[in-house]
Design a protein around this nucleic acid. Structure first.
Lengths: 124, 124
DNA sequence: ATTACATTTCGATGATTGGCTAAATATAGA
DNA sequence: TCTATATTTAGCCAATCATCGAAATGTAAT
């Protein structure tokens, strides 16, 4: 039961839901991008990411100073993918998620590295 | 997003997961039966049931002094049923859930009404 | 009516959780 | 090596949550 609980608990926070949806949209994001999207302290976001990772929902890869997160293979295969599908369907038209998507597109335009360094994106 | 969160939060507690699985197994249970299974105070169980109900996962019907809960229609139809299926698959072999099932069969043998009154079941 | 009992609501309490800042760690570049 | 930057860890605080006992509510039976 502990494994199941780690997943449901991971998904029982709004900021983590937004993060999962963002990774569904953008495939891969570094911590600073998620931090920008959520508007939280980096330390807080790092904590959220480790909760998602411990639940097995996301995986990380390190590249230089940056750590990139993406949905894990587990999150994309049965049986958990059905839960992710439910999330997708249920949140697709959510106001918050739509706003996040818009914001993410802006972030994506200038690439993760530049974004992290600048803290903003002057339309690269 | 609030609706989704109410569901994930409802499922992010071990006692509520056990309750959902019990209702999956037994179709219908009154509060005192769930109370017996979980070993909690009636007030606590009542609160858990209302959290599950507010999330739309269970429905209730009143019969005399007793209130019977069962999985809601929503919980049995797309898209949420996929989440319930995941729960079923993931928890089917869980030690706690197996023990609960065994206990529930014992409870069921003498019927809800008698069980509630006696607080135990002397093999009716 | 009065009693008995199942359930819910209320109020208090201890545990968990999300948030922050500050400090620690890790890495790239001067 | 020294500095700058991205991330994580540690320590703390406020808010939320699970739990209980007590009181309130609703219902059945005497």
């Amino acid at each position: 039961m502990k494994n199941v609980l780690s997943v449901t608990k991971a998904l029982s926070d709004g900021n983590r839901l937004r993060t999962v949806m963002a990774l569904h949209e953008m495939v891969e994001l570094c911590v600073c991008q998620v931090t920008e999207m959520l508007g939280l302290a980096p330390a807080t976001v790092s904590r959220h990411m480790s909760i998602l990772q411990n639940a097995g929902l996301v995986s990380s890869r390190k590249n230089g100073r940056w750590v990139y997160y993406r949905l894990s293979e587990m999150a994309k295969t049965e049986p958990i993918v059905t839960v992710m599908d439910w999330l997708g369907e249920s949140l697709d038209h959510s106001k918050e998620i739509k706003a996040d998507r818009k914001y993410l597109r802006k972030i994506a335009r200038c690439g993760a590295a530049q974004y992290c360094s600048n803290g903003s994106c002057e339309e690269g």
